[in-house]
């Protein structure tokens, strides 16, 4: 379960004080596929960085499965990112000179898994996200956008995280591929009971989620989801 309580993030640029995240609270049950909608500059990325422990909130708590990550020291945050969080980025952010499989193996290497375990689990995950075996050894910079995003999802799943944060995962993809990726994320959240939080401005994507939040001027409001998309 993800619990966010009155989180505030303040940036100071010169004399100006900006609050891209200004007192946000929400709770998401484990295994939920949720979307946070917002225009660019609405504070989506800032909120994501706070949830993913990439940055620290100025005040407030982010509690993941009972652990308040706002209070963790830096060393523990690294472990938290490694074991409990998976990231999917708009630009995929794969390591370009490594193969698809090596990219998926990276988080497991950091977690200390043996080479054999890493290799077999990476192959398994790549198959799960729909990447055929002959693509596993292809260099990341030689993959198409859709394939690269699948690899990036497999990498996010590598250490069985409780929470996957996806930042505009369909932003660089054509509509058709984007839809396939959304379906993949949605099914994974249910199959693996992983909470997936997608930050997007894509309404078509948001329409397929279990819950939908809107971020505007640093504040979050939940919007009703059409019943047709609920399972």
């Amino acid at each position: 379960m993800l619990e966010v309580r009155d989180v505030v993030k303040v940036f100071k640029t010169g004399d100006n004080t900006i609050k891209p995240v200004n007192g946000i609270s929400f709770t998401v049950e484990q295994g939920t596929f949720a979307a946070i909608l917002g225009k660019s500059g609405s504070g989506k990325s800032t909120l994501l960085s706070l949830l993913g422990a990439l940055d620290k909130a100025t005040s407030g708590d982010v509690v993941v499965d009972g652990v308040n990550i706002s209070a963790l020291p830096d060393a523990k945050l690294t472990a938290y990112r490694r074991d409990d969080i998976g990231f999917v980025f708009q630009a995929y952010n794969l390591i370009p000179n490594l193969s698809a499989k090596d990219n998926v193996m990276l988080p497991m290497e950091f977690a200390g898994l043996s080479r054999a375990e890493r290799s077999s689990r990476a192959a398994e995950l790549l198959v799960q996200v729909g990447l055929e075996e002959d693509m596993h050894d292809r260099k990341a910079n030689k993959l198409s956008g859709g394939m690269a995003q699948r690899v990036s999802i497999a990498r996010a799943l590598a250490n069985n995280p409780k929470l996957i944060l996806a930042d505009e995962p369909t932003g660089n993809l054509d509509d058709e591929t984007g839809e396939l990726i959304i379906d993949l994320l949605r099914s994974l959240s249910h199959e693996k009971n992983t909470t997936i939080l997608v930050v997007t401005h894509d309404h078509a994507l948001a329409a397929k989620t279990d819950r939908k939040f809107r971020l505007a001027r640093g504040r979050l409001t939940e919007e009703p989801v059409r019943a047709a998309h609920l399972h």
Binding site: L54, A75, T78, R81, R82, D83, N93, I95, F110, R155
Partner: peptide, 14 residues
């Protein structure tokens, strides 16, 4: 820098 950020985001220690 960005790649280092990625490595840190996916759990690499300093």
């Amino acid at each position: 820098r960005r790649e280092i950020g990625v490595l840190k985001a996916i759990g690499a220690s300093n």
